[in-house]
Structure formats: structure tokens, C-alpha cells
Design a protein around this nucleic acid. Structure first.
Lengths: 366, 366
DNA sequence: TTGAAAGCGCTAACAA
DNA sequence: TTGTTAGCGCTTTCAA
């Protein structure tokens, strides 16, 4: 049925069908000026008739830019990351770009593989929520001009982010005196780490505000149940926790701190509660852990990092430190597209504020 | 620092660096046989040194296959679709394929645009959760050999699915006598519609089982609060609702049925409850509506279509008819890849069973 | 085992 | 306004 041999019609086929030169078809397809309406009409008709669609691969090969970006997140099915991804998609769309996305599943090997696959496809840029810490393999890509923005956690090649020491002690060696606002955090963590664009939320500041909230409601024994200490955000939030204790003149008690995968959060808290001098309140380090703790049946005072759907419908409502996943995604994507349009300024380090949402669980007395 | 002029090194650069012909590099890169270990080693070293990465666009242009598929869903941030997407991604990965995904936002125009963009990028196949009903623009693509699987709702070009009439009456004109199992649904809806591969869940059967569950717990006035009737799944679920009433010898009462966007669900139900002879139980047509109804403060007997996180933590737990988003995604993707590897069998129509999960709200007495 | 040449479908540069 | 030519980086075919 088609004029061409078989398979998809090409510009050549359209040109033949319309009785013009190939380049004229190209002009019409790309809305380039300098074609009489009459000719353009004939070409358009042929395009319509043949069901012609420009072959993007050929175009990319010729032009060098793919108009696509790669997005690597931990899990596209996680509500936090899917909100993040949606925002990225929206910004990309506005820039005429497509999004290739993939889940790293918190596996550095898979992350690497995904990123290199994206690079093979010559994405114009990358937005990465890093799970690995060693991104030296990105060097050639960055040198070749691929833009990269790290989001949610720092990353990138170079001296290495060196976040967390892998022990449970966190990174709370700084004794900075941040403002009292709870959202401003002042100097961040290892900012010198790498020199890549980075967009984070104010993890330490958010945790600080959440724990302070519990303390202000009369609690003096506040537990911290967080994710594995090796995860950047986890360490930062622990740092905020310690700062809030310190500021209130409360002693840091390692027996009230637990870091580990969400599956173990419930039992970890149970152990604390049956011990002597148990905590009267809990601060949970992320949404999964909050849910795990609730599911384990704990009902004492609680503030959780991360908002989640239905937090308001539980009884009592769950007080949270809300991040803005969409804001994070939007900011990262906008920064990336700024780079893609030629901004060669110094690497940026952006921290978005968090917001304390009181709903009941965080206002319970000791 | 690179041997080449600037920009990314090419096979040519690698060949020059290794002192071999371009084709030899190609052989090494693609693991083709017939290269001595010695030569291969030299080539590999050059690849490593230059940071060479195969240009996929050029490869695609030459070979014709992109090893990528397009995924169009309503919203990547919706938990149902993100679980679905994750499963698709997983299957694609197993087949060495990448996933281009985009959100249609329930807008047929945007859906069309996305799909055509994907086709321009010469995806090998498409998985589409259609929001539009007119897919005639897909004809040239399908003729050109792009495989397409419709998921969650039927679609495709041709006679048109013609699902729903746009009124609130649903499509309950069939009086088929399905099995009593609640999951088997027997003959589906307009199966003749289009002739594309389709993977759905058993919407009518699931709704039937849910409503029957309420009736068995003594309810004789059961409301149906569903999404817009124009949406395929909505009509199907209404069909199941009617069948359950019919089977129990209960009269269908239009004043107990509401279809419309989730934002209006709460007030719609309120209106029913303040009327004469109010319902004692509610069946909600999807997850968003279930949450909307709960948020509006309704606490009578309730069974909802779609499971959602924390349904078990609410008091009482929310009884649901659970779909399997991941199963849907996996099935659709596996079918697609079966087509891509040459299966030219008749279009398939697959319905996955649903599962009733009692948690308390559906077992409340009238 | 290795290499040379052609060409995938398009755009950029330069005629006519 | 329209057309011609070269070549993007790779794989395919055929030859050495």
C-alpha cells in the first residue's frame, strides 16, 4: 500500500510522492521558512497520505542532540520518587524533551548500568538520585558535555561525596548554630564533595524542627528511628536530631537511636520501649519507617520525616516534616535545562525548605 | 585530552588509537566472534582510555530497532500506575529494552502527542493506558509494524471501542450469567471493539464480588459512587454492581448511583444519605473515590475498588477489591515482547482476576 | 582473522 | 524558492 519498498516511508518517499526534492520535505517537516504554501500543501498531503513520521534517530545522529534526558531514581513506584519524576517530566515536556527513566533499586551497579545506557542513547542530560557513591565512570560523559544534576542526595565523580562513615554515629561533628527557624539550615553537609549541581531538601533542618517540636511538647526522651546510616539523608536527619537535643540541653543517648532498613524499624522501637527509661516520643527518619512503626502498633507521640497520603486520616493524624518531592524534581529539572541552554556558572547546591505539618501525633504529651 | 577533534570519541577514533580497522572495533564492541584475544585487548584498552561509548542513535539508524518501548499512562505519580510502570520497566529490562514513559493526564490530545513522539523515536512497541477512544492516528504506526498493547482499558483504531454512552446508565445491557466465583467474568464487554491486544482486570467481576459481599452482610440499600461514566472501567464496574443487585433480587435505584470526578464523590454521597431511604452501604468505584469518601467523613459500611496503602491502618480497616497493578504491567509487557519476537497470533484479550480483601469496613452490619 | 565500502534517514552548507 | 551534496556513527556485505 505504501509507495516505498516496505517499512516506514522516509523523506525520500514523501519527496517522490509530492514531486519535490528531499530537502523541501525537510523544510516542511521542520517548519523552515522559504516554501510556497502551494508546495508545502502538496508535501503535507503526501506526508498525511503515506503516514510519514520523521525518524528521530537519523535526526539525532545528524544534529547531535537527542532532546531527551535520563532520570535515575530509586524506584518509580515509590510515591516520593514518582511525584519527583512527574515534576521532572513536566519541565522536560515544556522544553520539548523526553524523559528516559529507570529505577536503580538502591543498587549502585544497576545505577551505573542505567546511566551508561542513557549515555549510550546520548541523552542531553541526567538527573540522578544516587545510590552509589562512586561516580568516576561519569567522568568521560561529563567531559563530553553531558549535563548532570544530582537530586535528593549528593553525588558525582571526584573526591567522592564521602557521606556517612557507615557507622551509626552519623556525621554530627559540626556544631554550627543554625537559625531557630527550623527550615533554614545554614551551611550544609560536605559541600566540598564533588563539584556537581545538587538539589536537596533541608534534611538536617527538617529533622531539627521535628524533634524540637516534640521537645516543646514536653518530651525529654525522644527516640530516633532512621534508615541505614550509610544513606546520606539518613545521616543528615540524625544530625538535625542531635542538634535539637543539644539545643534543649538534652543528653544524646545512643540507646534511643536505631538505624537500619524499614523492615526492622518496628522491632527496634519495641526493644527501646521495653527497656529501662523508655522514650516517650519517636522521630522517624522517612516515610517507609513511619509506616512501619505505625504498622507495628506504636501509638506514642510521633513526628515523621516525609508526608504520606492518608496521614491525616489516621487517628491521631500523623504529624510530619513534609518535603516537596515535586518541588525537588522541578528545581532539579530547571537547573538541568539551564545548563543545557548554556549556563556554565559554578556548580550549584540548592536546599529546599521542609514544612512541619502538625496533625495530632506530634502534639501528644509525654 | 581526547584523540578526536572534540566531543565524544567514535569507533573511528578507537580504531585509530588501537591501530585497527573500524570494523574490528565494531566486532569487539558487539562481542562478535573472530577477533584474536590480543587484538580485542588492544581495542578494549583504547575504548577504556578514550571513554568510548557506542552511539545508539547511529546503531538504531542502521539496524532499525531501537530496543526501547513507549509507555503511556495517565499519571506516573499515581500509585496504581507507578506500580504498573515499575513492572513494565522490569520486564523491559529483562529484554534489554528501555522504557520511554509519559503521562497523558487523561487528555486524549496529549496522549496522541506522546504516542506520536514515541513513534518518531521509533520505539519497537507501545503499552498504552488509553484515555482517548479514537486511535485512528495509530494506523500507519501499526501498519509499519509497531506493536501495541492496550492496558487497563481497551483501545486501538478501527470500529472504535465505543465504551460507555456518556450517560450514567452504564453498559449493563447484557444479561450474561457469569459464574458465581466473583473473579471469573466470562464474556467481557465490547470485545469486538478494535482488534488490538488488550490486558484488563476483571472490572465487572470485581465489582460484582464487592457488592455481593455487602449484600451478604445484610445490606439491601447499596450505593455506587464511581468515576465519570465515560471511563471504561467505571462503566464496567457499574455493570458488576447491577449484576450483583439483580442476582440478589434487589431493585436498581438510580438515586443510589453517582458517577463523576473524585472531587465530587463526597458531596454526592452526602446527598444520598440525607435523602429518604438512604443507603446503608457504599461501593466506591476506584481508589481516589474511596479516599475522597473517607475524607468526607463517611463511616458506614464500605467496599472500595482498588487497594491502597494504609487501608489496613484506618479504623475500621477498609475492605477493598484489590487489583494487581504489577501483574497488569507484567502481563502487558510480556505480551508486547512476545509480539516483538514474532508472535503473529490473533489479538489477545486478557482479564486478570481481582481479589476481595476484607478488613472491617465491608463487614459492618446495616 | 581482518578490512574496505556502502548506506541507514536525516540536516547543514552551499548551489542554482 | 528550490535542489544537490556531503556526512553524522554505526552495521552490513563482501573481499582480502
Amino acid at each position: 500500500m505504501t509507495e516505498s519498498t516496505r517499512g516506514r516511508p522516509t523523506m525520500k518517499d514523501v519527496a517522490a510522492a509530492a514531486g519535490v526534492a528531499l530537502k523541501t520535505v525537510s523544510r516542511v517537516v521542520n517548519d523552515e521558512p522559504g516554501v510556497t504554501p502551494d508546495t508545502a500543501g502538496r508535501v503535507s498531503a503526501a506526508i498525511e497520505r503515506l503516514g510519514y513520521r520523521r525518524n528521530e534517530s537519523a535526526r539525532v545522529l545528524r544534529r547531535g542532540r537527542t532532546s531527551s534526558i535520563g532520570l535515575v531514581i530509586e524506584d518509580v513506584a515509590d510515591p516520593f520518587y514518582s511525584g519527583f519524576g512527574r515534576a521532572v517530566e513536566e519541565v522536560a515536556l515544556g522544553h520539548g524533551s523526553l524523559v528516559l527513566s529507570g529505577s536503580s533499586g538502591e543498587d549502585p551497579g544497576r545505577e551505573r548500568e542505567l546511566i551508561l545506557t542513557f549515555c549510550s542513547r546520548r541523552v542531553d542530560g541526567l538527573i540522578i538520585v544516587p545510590s552509589g557513591t562512586d561516580h568516576d565512570y561519569l567522568r568521560p560523559e561529563l567531559d563530553a558535555g553531558i549535563a548532570a544534576v544530582f537530586a535528593d542526595r549528593p553525588g558525582g565523580p571526584g573526591p567522592g561525596p564521602g557521606t556517612g562513615t557507615g557507622t551509626g554515629t552519623g556525621t554530627g561533628t559540626r556544631s554550627d548554630s543554625d537559625s531557630d527557624s527550623g527550615s533554614g539550615s545554614g551551611s550544609g553537609p560536605g559541600r566540598d564533595a564533588g563539584s556537581c549541581d545538587t538539589v536537596l531538601c533541608d534534611n538536617a533542618g527538617g529533622a531539627y524542627a521535628g524533634v524540637r517540636h516534640l521537645i516543646r511538647h514536653g518530651h525529654r526522651r525522644v527516640a530516633f528511628v532512621g534508615d541505614r546510616a550509610s544513606i546520606f539523608t539518613s545521616g543528615e536527619r540524625l544530625r538535625g536530631y542531635r542538634r535539637a537535643l543539644e539545643e534543649a540541653g538534652l543528653r544524646f543517648d545512643a540507646s534511643l537511636v536505631s538505624t537500619g532498613p524499614a523492615e526492622e524499624a518496628g522491632s527496634a522501637l519495641t526493644r527501646m520501649l521495653v527497656g529501662g527509661d523508655p522514650p516517650t516520643a519517636v522521630f522517624t527518619g522517612n516515610g517507609r519507617i513511619t509506616v512501619a512503626v505505625l504498622r507495628a502498633g506504636h501509638r506514642q507521640a510521633l513526628v515523621g520525616f516525609d508526608d504520606f497520603e492518608l496521614a491525616d486520616l489516621l487517628v491521631p493524624g500523623v504529624t510530619v516534616v513534609a518535603q516537596d518531592p515535586a518541588g525537588l524534581g522541578r528545581t532539579a529539572a530547571e537547573l538541568l535545562f539551564r545548563r543545557l541552554s548554556g549556563d556554565r556558572g559554578a556548580p550549584e547546591w540548592i536546599e529546599l525548605p521542609t514544612r512541619l505539618v502538625p496533625r495530632g501525633s506530634g502534639e501528644l504529651p509525654p
